[in-house]
């Protein structure tokens, strides 16, 4: 569903994303992990069309994001880390607007179902400027799902959500994958990735450091089955003394 081929994004001489090759299949949850500044958000913003790549290709459902942006974006739903909406528009009006720009007719029942699912029915007719961060985040989920996407991307989706929101979102990711969507999420909450992700991609300094299931990552680093993702993550991303460890020097996929 999503294929990144040598994706590169440079800011001057700095490469935020440096020749990233990655693919996400329909029906799987792929967690994108990495330390701050690793390039996760930059890569996702390239995929969603918020910023333009300096090089490489992004294919969504076979459509090149640069050449066929409308076809690619039609297949995509996106939840940013800090969702902000038109303050003087109600949640319902916002969803109606998004349904209109996507050319969806008779979206009212889907709208109601999404608002219900994300516990926003009572606030559906309030202006979004009155929403708390968590409510805005839940509305972002509704907005991302209103267009029946095939690729669902969430950048730090847990930020600002309450406990019930956390649980809902984790369930949602599995449901979406079960329904055949490709789901990509970035998160610093490793427990979430461990719980919901089918595969885990670790990025550091713009490059892919490791990719695989949790078991595959353990096997690659020669760790036992009870090694947590947190330990694996630190091993994969901590700065190494020159020549002290070989795992960063061999970034081939597992």
């Amino acid at each position: 569903m999503l294929e990144l081929v040598q994706l590169t994004k440079r800011y001057g001489r700095t490469a935020a994303v440096d020749g990233l090759d990655l693919a996400a299949k329909a029906g799987e949850v792929l967690a994108l992990l990495g330390p701050n500044g690793a390039g996760k958000t930059t890569a996702i913003r390239c995929v969603t069309g918020l910023i333009k790549p300096s090089g490489g290709r992004i294919l969504i459902g076979g459509h090149d994001v640069e050449r066929e942006p409308i076809a690619a974006k039609t297949l995509t739903g996106f939840v940013p880390d800090r969702a902000w909406f038109y303050p003087k528009v109600t949640a319902r009006e916002l969803l109606r607007y998004l349904a209109s720009v996507r050319g969806l007719s008779a979206a009212e029942s889907r709208m109601d179902a999404l608002l219900e699912r994300f516990r926003l029915t009572r606030s559906a007719d309030s202006l979004t400027e009155t929403f708390s961060h968590g409510m805005r985040q839940r509305l972002a989920f509704c907005a991302a799902l209103i267009g029946n996407p095939r690729l669902f991307i969430a950048d730090e989706p847990m930020v600002g959500l309450d406990v019930q929101g956390h649980r809902d979102v984790k369930l949602l990711f599995r449901e979406l994958a079960a329904a055949g969507l490709a789901v990509i999420l970035t998160t610093h909450t490793l427990a979430v990735a461990e719980e919901v992700a089918d595969r885990i991609a670790v990025i550091d300094r713009g490059k892919l450091v490791a990719l695989g299931t949790l078991a595959e990552l353990r096997a690659r680093l020669n760790r036992s089955d009870d090694t947590s993702l947190e330990e694996l993550f630190i091993l994969l991303t901590e700065p190494q003394a020159p020549g002290s460890d070989e795992h960063l020097a061999s970034p081939e996929r597992t």
Partner: peptide, 29 residues
Amino acid sequence: AAPRRRSATPWWERVLVARFGVAGAIIVK
């Protein structure tokens, strides 16, 4: 946080969206 009254899609919104498509939806917003 004063909820507005829920209403069906108003006629002018339907006309603008039908006439101008995506641009019409943006005009409504």
